[in-house]
Measured scan of single mutants.
Amino acid sequence: EVTIKANLIFANGSTQTAEFKGTFEKATSEAYAYADTLKKDNGEYTVDVADKGYTLNAKFAG
């Protein structure tokens, strides 16, 4: 089991951190699915991958 950390950075400057656990593939998929649920209210996002894929920095356009 691994933990994927998602740093969510919103256009207004606020941030949120979420963690997803499971296999690498499952946890990564859940992190992206969570970011997708936030698109409606926060706009499209881009992701910078860090820490060999164990940290995802998602920046929302607003």
Rank of each mutant, 00 (worst) to 15 (best):
E1G: 08
E1N: 11
V2N: 03
V2D: 03
T3Q: 05
T3Y: 06
I4V: 10
I4K: 00
I4H: 02
I4N: 01
I4D: 00
K5T: 15
A6D: 03
A6F: 14
L8V: 09
L8F: 15
L8Y: 15
L8W: 11
I9C: 12
A11I: 09
A11G: 09
A11M: 09
A11P: 14
N12G: 07
N12T: 07
N12Q: 05
G13Q: 06
G13T: 06
S14Y: 13
S14P: 07
T15K: 12
T15D: 03
T17H: 12
T17F: 10
A18Y: 14
F20I: 02
K21N: 09
K21T: 13
F24H: 06
E25V: 09
K26M: 13
A27E: 00
T28H: 06
E30V: 04
E30H: 07
A31L: 08
Y32V: 07
Y32H: 06
Y32F: 11
Y32M: 10
A33Q: 10
Y34N: 02
Y34A: 03
A35S: 04
D36G: 03
T37C: 14
T37V: 10
L38D: 01
L38N: 05
K39Q: 08
K40T: 11
K40I: 12
G43P: 01
G43V: 02
E44D: 13
E44S: 11
E44N: 12
Y45G: 01
Y45Q: 01
T46N: 08
T46S: 11
T46G: 04
V47M: 15
D48R: 09
D48C: 15
V49G: 04
D51V: 00
D51M: 00
D51G: 02
K52Q: 14
K52P: 05
K52F: 15
G53W: 01
Y54P: 04
Y54W: 07
Y54I: 05
T55L: 07
T55P: 02
T55Q: 07
T55Y: 05
T55S: 05
T55A: 04
L56P: 04
N57Y: 11
N57C: 07
N57M: 06
N57K: 05
N57H: 08
A58S: 04
A58C: 15
A58E: 04
K59S: 11
F60A: 02
A61D: 12
A61W: 13
G62E: 07
G62Q: 08
